[in-house]
Design a protein around this nucleic acid. Structure first.
Lengths: 135, 135
DNA sequence: CAGGATCCAGTGGGATACTG
DNA sequence: CAGTATCCCACTGGATCCTG
């Protein structure tokens, strides 16, 4: 593949490339590059959850962001919303097969964060004190 | 592990939990939940790169965001900055061992995005047209 | 070449109040 | 319970200009 018109044709499905600005995969990347997506997706791995379940599970999320993020995930085929049409309302959110595969990849990232906090924090401290000394 | 004081002690290193708002791993998560981090980290897997290399490799990134993100990654021990003190300036950025392990996990996410654009786009189209019909 | 400094429009997301 | 609607400000990040 020559560098001929890499810039113009941006990226085809056959050679999808997130590094290319115009590649549609960037849209998916934007979806993933989101704090709440990174928490909601793996949270749903254990099975369907209700709105209130997720609110409890994910510390610090607001109702607005929960709904907004769920809608976006649903829109992109990663989550299904099941309204049981009951009173009081009962709505379940579950991963689609597509969503499940993404959730697994995301969970690994989350696990990495949990596993390496110590190293990251130590690095940050040493970096910050090094900067302080330079002044 | 009892649910006794899960809420109060938030999270210790022994049971780090990104779902807990106060858990320090959230800081690492915030680092990861970033569009440019998600592109810079895997880009560095092939070896050290210079500022201009990264600018070319990563479509759409601005000089400001590149420098800013690199600084943050360096601060957290994921990237090392090597200034060769030459004229004209020559500066290399490379992954640390810690950064490399994260970069691998991130690359898998990027690959997922590249591999599933089609499915995501189809889902989005069908979702959007379904919404339109309801009106 | 690498990147600091500024300006500033746009937006993300919390708080709050209301509804079926 | 599961949302919707609104207000509104802090911060994000692009554009532009400048420097060693």
């Amino acid at each position: 593949m020559g560098p001929r018109n890499l810039a113009t044709k941006a990226c085809l499905d056959a050679d999808a490339n997130v590094y290319a600005e115009a590649c549609p995969s960037r849209a998916v990347l934007a979806l993933v590059a989101d704090k709440w997506t990174l928490l909601i997706m793996p949270a749903l791995r254990q099975g369907p959850m209700r709105n209130s379940d997720l609110m409890r599970r994910i510390g610090g999320i607001s109702q607005k962001m929960l709904t907004q993020t769920l809608r976006e995930l649903e829109r992109n085929g990663l989550v299904v919303r099941v309204d049981h049409n009951e009173v009081p309302p009962r709505v379940d959110y579950a991963l689609t097969p597509l969503g499940r595969s993404l959730a697994e990849a995301i969970r690994k990232l989350d696990a990495w964060c949990e596993a390496h906090i110590d190293q990251v924090e130590m690095a940050r401290q040493s970096f910050d004190t090094a900067i302080a000394q330079k002044v």
